[in-house]
């Protein structure tokens, strides 16, 4: 599948969207199996665990939700913390908005706007013809959503047996996520300013994760990246201004 060029795919946009979302399954299914297993161990039924995955549909916050409920934390605090972790999603919709052609389905489809679907859609939608975007997004989001739901159900019903039988599978398959993010990021190293911005963001994110700040790492590192971009851009602008003065 070509990721360059502003062309309409010859295959159906639905099929292309489903195909593009396939690498996500390597990351989604093992994590969803873990969620189903931990949720059942925390006292939730298989049906409740699956419903949490279908309705909240936000990985890290779901783990926090079941852990806090199981530990007897006040429910207002559970809701607050869950929504706080998911607050990073507010920047995804506005960034996709310019690429969404008019349709009454878009608001409902935003339920599927996870971190990974955003990363995929932000890279892919601008390359597709307007008429293909709704089909592409719907297929990609549905593949990811159903894999998350199915993985949770599987983990809740047979998670213990699966992790005992194939212990390495859960370690290896999630590597699909960093590999996918890299493929989506690689074409963005287009200038010194962007390269330094992205390297800075990646380094800060890794450092925060290593320091144990898992939930805040993504928004904090992204903000550090934006600050770096503005700093570098200001230096470039100052250099251009000085150059113009020297030549003038």
């Amino acid at each position: 599948m070509d990721t360059a060029g502003n062309t309409s795919p010859t295959t159906s946009p639905w099929r292309l969207g489903a195909k593009d979302a396939l690498p996500l399954l390597g990351g989604y299914i093992p994590v969803a199996i873990s969620f189903g297993l931990i949720s059942v161990q925390a006292g939730f039924s298989a049906l409740e665990s699956t419903l949490i995955s279908a309705l909240i549909y936000a990985g890290a916050s779901q783990f926090l939700f079941i852990a806090m409920v199981a530990s007897g934390a006040p429910l207002w605090l559970v809701v607050l913390m869950t929504l706080l972790i998911n607050a990073r999603h507010v920047v995804y919709g506005p960034n996709l908005a310019p690429y969404l052609p008019p349709s009454r389905y878009w608001p409902w489809l935003m339920h599927g706007l996870t971190d990974q679907i955003f990363a995929l859609a932000h890279s892919r939608l601008p390359l597709l013809a307007e008429k293909d975007r709704l089909g592409w997004y719907t297929a990609a989001a549905l593949v990811a959503w159903f894999s998350w739901i199915a993985g949770t159900a599987l983990g809740a019903v047979a998670g213990a047996q699966i992790t005992q039988r194939w212990p390495l599978l859960g370690d290896v398959m999630p590597f699909a996520l960093p590999a996918l993010f890299l493929v989506l990021l690689a074409p963005r190293f287009t200038s010194t300013v962007w390269s330094l911005t992205l390297v800075c963001t990646i380094s800060v994110a890794m450092l925060l994760k290593l320091l144990g700040i898992s939930n805040g790492a993504i928004p904090l590192a992204a903000l550090a990246g934006v600050a770096m971009f503005y700093l570098l851009q200001a230096r470039v602008n100052a250099r251009i201004k000085n150059g113009v003065k020297a030549h003038g």
Binding site: T197, I202, A222, F229
Partner: peptide, 9 residues
Amino acid sequence: PTMIAAMFG
């Protein structure tokens, strides 16, 4: 793009 880079990191 910085959100995607942060997810990668």
